[in-house]
């Protein structure tokens, strides 16, 4: 039995399926990372994904143009993020509660509109919506194992990896990225240096809206080619967890999201055997709680270490003065 499992895992098809399943986690997780680092926990990733997934399908079905659908999806997600940012940053609403409200509204609103448009509350199967193209990379696609793993994914999967790289450059190598992290680290200090905390967080939330939208579009225009009610199924929350599991860094977040994808794919694999899939599906969530603990302990140890070093330096200085 275990041989079967291992053979399943070490196949190129399995690796490819992990990448496919991880994509709708990586993209919103990157968005969650950006807003988290600016000091605004975006709990509405889930709702933004759902709205974008819905809008993409509807617009592509009505215009019969896949790219108009994608653009409309991104814009709709940005709009939702802007709505959240407006309520939080300008009307003083609590970010967590308004995020929850956005999620509820997205769930209800998409089902409601789906019913109005199609008369069906389950899925958009009666709408002829479009799917984004699959990319077969020339040359690489003909290499036996590597080709199966790397080639033949939809554009969102490639985008997920490219954007991870972009986001890490943005956060650590550009002045805007440094400002954004400064605002998240210590808003008062950043404000005293003349940074506009509110505007920077607005920007971060909008970026997270774009990235979460891409994740949602991946679900409805690539992974599946229709919209289903509540089709995000908690992925926005998993994405948020990946941010913390990944130690709040872009590459860590990427790896964490892939880990969630791996266990999801694994539980599918085990579903055909006698192992209860629930236990396997539980692993990444338990791992996240553990990671949260490890991260917090490390954070505290670092603070203690900093304080100790400061004290030593201070002691050395006073001693030097005393001589």
């Amino acid at each position: 039995m275990w041989e079967l499992v291992l053979k399943g895992i070490f196949s190129a098809l399995f690796v490819a399926s992990v990448l496919r399943i991880s994509t709708p986690l990586i993209l919103p997780a990157l968005g969650g990372l950006i807003s988290e680092l600016s000091g605004a926990t975006n709990i509405a990733l889930e709702g933004i994904m759902l709205v974008a997934a819905f809008t993409g399908v509807v617009i592509s079905a009505f215009t019969q143009n896949v790219w108009l659908g994608v653009i409309a999806g991104i814009l709709s997600g940005m709009l939702v993020a802007a709505f959240l940012a407006y309520f939080h940053l300008y009307l003083g609403a609590d970010l967590i509660l308004s995020g929850i409200a956005i999620n509820i509204m997205a769930t209800g609103g998409t089902i409601f509109l789906l019913y109005v448009l199609t008369g069906d509350k389950g899925s958009s199967s009666t709408l002829a919506s479009k799917a984004v193209p699959v990319i077969n990379i020339p040359l690489i696609k003909d290499i036996p194992v590597v080709g199966t793993i790397l080639s033949g994914h939809n554009i969102f999967t490639y985008l997920a990896f490219i954007l991870t790289w972009f986001v890490s450059i943005y956060l650590y190598r550009t002045p805007q990225g440094v400002h954004l992290r400064a605002v998240g680290e210590n808003p008062e200090a950043a404000a005293s240096l003349g940074l506009n905390v509110r505007r920077i967080r607005l920007g971060a939330l909008l970026m997270s809206g774009v990235l979460a939208s891409l994740g949602g579009l991946n679900l409805s225009m690539a992974y599946l080619t229709l919209f289903q009610r509540e089709m995000t199924a908690g992925r926005g929350f998993i994405a948020l967890a990946a941010v913390f599991l990944g130690g709040r860094t872009p590459w860590g977040t990427l790896i964490a999201a892939i880990l969630f994808g791996f266990f999801d794919a694994l539980s599918n694999q085990l579903g055909s055997l006698a192992i209860p899939s629930q236990w396997v599906q539980m692993i990444p969530y338990a791992a996240t709680v553990l990671a949260l603990v490890v991260y917090s302990i490390r954070q505290r140890a670092q603070a203690v270490e900093r304080a100790r070093r400061f004290q030593e330096k201070h002691l050395a200085e006073t001693r030097a003065l005393g001589d």
Binding site: T107, G108, I111, F112, K121
Partner: peptide
């Protein structure tokens, strides 16, 4: 589901 929208509002 309209009630969900009202709830969110």
């Amino acid at each position: 589901e309209m009630v969900l929208v009202i709830q969110a509002l």
